[in-house]
Computed example of a mutant assay.
Amino acid sequence: MKTKWLLSSSAVLMGLFGLAGTFFPEEISKILGIDPSPIILILLQIIGGLYLGFAMLNWFTRSAMIGGIYNKPVVLGNLIHCIVVFFALFRQLAEQFHFIFAILTVVYLGFAVWFTLVLRSNPFGNQSKMSV
Score class of each variant (00 low, 15 high):
residue 2 K to I: 12
residue 3 T to S: 08
residue 5 W to F: 14
residue 5 W to N: 15
residue 12 V to Q: 09
residue 13 L to Y: 10
residue 14 M to P: 05
residue 14 M to H: 14
residue 16 L to C: 10
residue 17 F to D: 07
residue 19 L to F: 15
residue 19 L to P: 02
residue 20 A to H: 10
residue 20 A to F: 08
residue 20 A to Y: 09
residue 21 G to R: 07
residue 21 G to L: 13
residue 22 T to H: 08
residue 29 S to R: 04
residue 30 K to C: 06
residue 35 D to W: 08
residue 36 P to M: 01
residue 37 S to D: 11
residue 37 S to E: 13
residue 39 I to R: 05
residue 41 L to Q: 12
residue 45 Q to C: 05
residue 47 I to E: 05
residue 48 G to A: 11
residue 49 G to R: 02
residue 50 L to Y: 13
residue 51 Y to S: 06
residue 52 L to Y: 05
residue 54 F to S: 03
residue 55 A to T: 01
residue 57 L to Q: 15
residue 59 W to S: 08
residue 62 R to K: 10
residue 62 R to Y: 02
residue 63 S to A: 00
residue 66 I to V: 14
residue 67 G to F: 11
residue 67 G to M: 07
residue 70 Y to P: 01
residue 70 Y to D: 01
residue 70 Y to K: 04
residue 73 P to M: 12
residue 73 P to N: 09
residue 74 V to A: 12
residue 76 L to I: 12
residue 78 N to F: 00
residue 79 L to H: 06
residue 80 I to Q: 02
residue 82 C to I: 00
residue 83 I to Q: 02
residue 84 V to R: 01
residue 84 V to W: 03
residue 85 V to G: 00
residue 86 F to S: 00
residue 87 F to Q: 09
residue 92 Q to P: 04
residue 92 Q to D: 12
residue 92 Q to N: 12
residue 93 L to C: 07
residue 93 L to K: 02
residue 94 A to G: 09
residue 95 E to A: 14
residue 98 H to G: 04
residue 98 H to D: 14
residue 100 I to F: 15
residue 100 I to W: 13
residue 101 F to P: 02
residue 101 F to A: 13
residue 103 I to E: 13
residue 105 T to H: 04
residue 108 Y to P: 04
residue 109 L to T: 12
residue 112 A to L: 03
residue 113 V to G: 05
residue 113 V to M: 06
residue 114 W to C: 02
residue 116 T to G: 10
residue 116 T to P: 00
residue 120 R to E: 15
residue 121 S to V: 00
residue 122 N to R: 14
residue 122 N to L: 12
residue 123 P to W: 05
residue 124 F to M: 07
residue 125 G to P: 06
residue 127 Q to F: 15
residue 128 S to Q: 13
residue 129 K to S: 15
residue 131 S to L: 14
